[in-house]
Amino acid sequence: MAVASSDTAIRTGRVTRTFLYLVLLLFALFYMLPLYVMLVNSVKPLSEITGGGMMSLPQTWTVEPWTKAWNTAQIGVESTGLAPYFWNSIKMVVPAVAISTILGALNGYVLTKWRFKYDTILFGLMLFACFIPFQMVLIPMATVLGKLGLAGTTTGLVLVHVVYGIGFSTLYFRNYYAAFPTELVRAAQIDGAGFFQIFWRILLPSSGPITVVCVIWQFTNIWNDFLFGASFAAGNAQPMTVALNNLVQSSTGVKEYNVHFAGAILAALPTLLVYIVAGRYFVRGLMAGSVKG
């Protein structure tokens, strides 16, 4: 058999091809436009924006909107900038992601390798948690947090996000471990490894891709969450998203669009960074198990 070459393939005409690339380029530009507007306007003085030059490049370049958004902008009643709220978000998102991922992995391990009666029903119930709208739990959750003495604190927010996150992280890990050979667990049992040793030494080292998926998913969701942040965190404990809202929605003084744009980019940066660093594992992890390796 001769190797198939492009000569024998159906040829796409030069014109068609050019047209194709043009359309693609157009769409790409269209999708990039908001980012362009945000970037450009965050580095020009306010006067240039109010002067009507929203699409044009800045005449005088300045980083002042960025430093102002970060350090001195008026958030609510205080002019602290977004910085403290950024750290609030970090303090919330890191433990919440870590705890929900670890619990999800443990749940997945138990639900697939230590089967017990009614385990599928239990898993179904956990899965159900993924579909409950946030708004439904606001009041009961507020009551619970109040009773626990965690109302208005970052710890309280961590708890809320962990509880909500377990549904998804369990789903990810359960499906991943379902494809993990049970014979390996049995071999380890005969070798004398205990419950946690099997998890730690056998399963976890093979869970790289799904851990990345879970971390990205949880990180993005928790970082971007506004409703829980606005409902359960008071004053100094508010996360970045709520602070950004307060910055943009402030009804006093002049609307500093350039500062708002800079603040919005700052709020989006961490999730962007996570995608760039771990993105290629994300696709790989989502595909894991779907194709025989």
């Binding site: 049992q189 070798d191 093979s206």
Partner: peptide, 20 residues
Amino acid sequence: VHPSKRNIAMVFQSYALYPN
């Protein structure tokens, strides 16, 4: 009695070698 305490060893059909 737990498998590890029976002093047995098993060879599985899929070999069950720890991949990591």
